[in-house]
Design a protein around this nucleic acid. Sequence first.
DNA 1: TTGTAAGCGTTATCAA
DNA 2: TTGATAACGCTTACAA
Lengths: 339, 339
Amino acid sequence: MVTIKQIADMCGVSRGTVDRVLNQRGNVKPEKSRLIMEMAKKLNYKPNPAGKALVSRRNRPVVGILLPAKGISFFDEVIMAMRLSEKKYGLFGLKSEWRIMDGYDVGKLCAIMDELKPSVNALILNPINDERVRRKIDQFIDDGIFVVAVNNDIEGVKAHQYVGSDYFNGGQTAAALLKMFCPAGAKIGITIGSRSVLGHKQREQGFRALLKGDDRFSVLMTEEDRDDDIYAFERTTAMLKAHPEISAMFLAASGGAYGVCRAIISQKRDQDITVIAFDTIPAIVEMMQKGVVNAAIYQHPRQQGEKAMQIVFDYLVNGIKPDHDLHIMKNDIRILQNV
Amino acid sequence: MVTIKQIADMCGVSRGTVDRVLNQRGNVKPEKSRLIMEMAKKLNYKPNPAGKALVSRRNRPVVGILLPAKGISFFDEVIMAMRLSEKKYGLFGLKSEWRIMDGYDVGKLCAIMDELKPSVNALILNPINDERVRRKIDQFIDDGIFVVAVNNDIEGVKAHQYVGSDYFNGGQTAAALLKMFCPAGAKIGITIGSRSVLGHKQREQGFRALLKGDDRFSVLMTEEDRDDDIYAFERTTAMLKAHPEISAMFLAASGGAYGVCRAIISQKRDQDITVIAFDTIPAIVEMMQKGVVNAAIYQHPRQQGEKAMQIVFDYLVNGIKPDHDLHIMKNDIRILQNV
DNA sequence: TTGTAAGCGTTATCAA
DNA sequence: TTGATAACGCTTACAA
C-alpha cells in the first residue's frame, strides 16, 4: 500500500503538494502536477480510509434521517438496523439527527427538511413523490448535501442514491409463486395500500403482468385499503361476500394486511384461500402461524437500513464514493419455516 | 465522543497511563487504575476504530483464506464476495493469503495450515470435520490466531467464529415448500452429496423431520451422488427407473445437481416431477429456466463471504471483537423470478 | 510507576 | 507555488 508520503518522496515534493494535486485543490505547477498524477497512477495509489476518517472528525459529519414511518411496521426493522449502524459508525464520530414523522404530509416533510438542512452533511429519507419534495431534494444536492432515498425512490431529481427493492419484480415473484401453489388456477383478489403510492402500483402491475395470458388465473378485483386495518377489514369482507369464488389473495402492501387477514378468517375462508403477502412484519408472521398467510415476499428491511447508513458513512467519513447509484435488494420468499 | 486524551486530562495523568489501564497492560498504581476505569465508564469511552486502524498497520495484519473449493460452484460466489472485501479492506492495510484447494484431503489441508501459520494473524477456512483438523485449529487459537469457519462449522474446537447457514432448517424449509407445491402429497426421492458431510446429513434430517407424521408424503429413497454429475446422472436414472412413482425430488446438495436434473430430463419426467434444490449456482438457474427445478434454497453465499471478511477486519484492524460467535444466514427461497 | 514523543495516513493552516 | 507543521485518536518504545 503506497502512501502520500511515499509519492511525495519519489517526486521530490512535500506531502502538501501531493495532497493538493490528488484532491485537485489547484495551486500546483502543471508539470509537477502531471508528474505526481502519473506517479500516483503508476503506484496505484489508493487513500487509506482510516487516515481520512480521523481527519473527517474536524468537519463534524452529521447525517439526517427523515422517515415518515411512525406506526409503519415495515420501518421498525429498517430503523432498528439504522440504530445499530448509528452506534457502530458513531465510534468514528459520525453523528445522526433523527426525525421520524407520523404520516405523509408533504408540507411537514419539507419543513423538517428545511430545519435539518443547516446542520447535516447527508440526508437519508423515505421520500414522498411530490414536486415540492423533488425541488427540496435538488436544493440539498446543489448545496453539496449527500442524499440517499430509502425504500422509495424519487424520480427527476439530481444525482442521489437509492436503496430499496424492485417493486415490479416483487409483484412478479408473488405471482409466480402463486402459480406454483395453485397449479390448477385461481380467482384472485388483490389488496393494495393506495394506487397513488408508486411502489404499490408497480407491485400490482408486476403481479398482473406475470399472470397475463394464462387463463387459469384471473384477477377479480383490486381494493385499496389505505394502509388501515379497520378499513381493510371492511373492504375485504365486502370483497369476499361479493366474490365468494375467490380462491387466492395477493396482499400487495403490509399496511392493512392484518385487517385483510382478519376478514379472511371471519369469512371462514382461511383454510381454502391461498394468501401471498409482503413483508414479514409481526402481524404477517402471526398470520403465517395461524395458517392464513402462505408466503411473504421479503424486502430485506434490515439490509436496507444498513446499506443506507453504510453509504453515508463511506462517503462522509471514509471519503469513498459509492460505485453505483442504485442499491436494489432481492425480493426473497419467506414461509413459516424461514421467517 | 470522548477520547483517551480527554480522560487523561480529567484524571490528571498522561495518555500512556490511560492506555495501559484500558488495555490492561499493568504497571499502573491500583488507585489510579480505578480512577481511570471509573472515568472511562462514566464518560462511556469507546475507542475510535480509525485510530486503531492506523496503528494496526504496524503489525502488518494478514488473513489467510483456505477453501477446499476448486470447482465447487457454490464457492465461486463466496470467493467473489471475499475478493471484493479484500480490495475494500486492503485500503486499510489488511493483506490476504489465498489457498484454494482442490478436493477434501485432510493431510493436504493440515499441511497448508502449517504453511500459513507463521504469516497470518487470522484464518478463514471451510473446515473438514476431522480430528487432525480440529487439533490444528486449536493450535491456531492457542497461538492467538483468530479463526473463522465458513459454510461448515467444526465442533469441539476452542473459541472461534462460524459464518454459515442452518442446515437442518434449510431442509425443513425445503420440505415445507414442497408441501405447498404438492398439497395432494408426493412420493419423494432425495439426492445428497454424501452422508459423511455433516451439512448434507442435517438437511436430509430437517427435510424428513418436517414431513414426519404426514402420510401424504413419503420418502422412497436417498441416493448419495458424491457431488459428481456423472455419478449423479447414473444413480438418479436408476432411481427413477426403480421408482417410477416418484413425483418429487429433493436435491439436498448442489454438487451433483446438474447430473440429477439431466437424468430427470432424460427420463422425460421434467414436466411432472417437482424439484426443490439448494443454491442458485449457474447449473441450477439453467434448470430453473428449463422448468426442471421449481425452487432453490438460497444460502446467501455472497453474504457469507462478506461477513467472514468483515469479522476478521473488525477484529484485526479496528480492534472490535464480534459480539457473538455464530453468524447464521437465512435460508431464503428463490424461484425463477427472483433468482 | 509514569510521562514523553514518535508514528500510523490524511488534511488544513500558515508562513515563506 | 510550495513546504513545514500541527492535528485527528491510538499505540508503543523509551526515558525518567
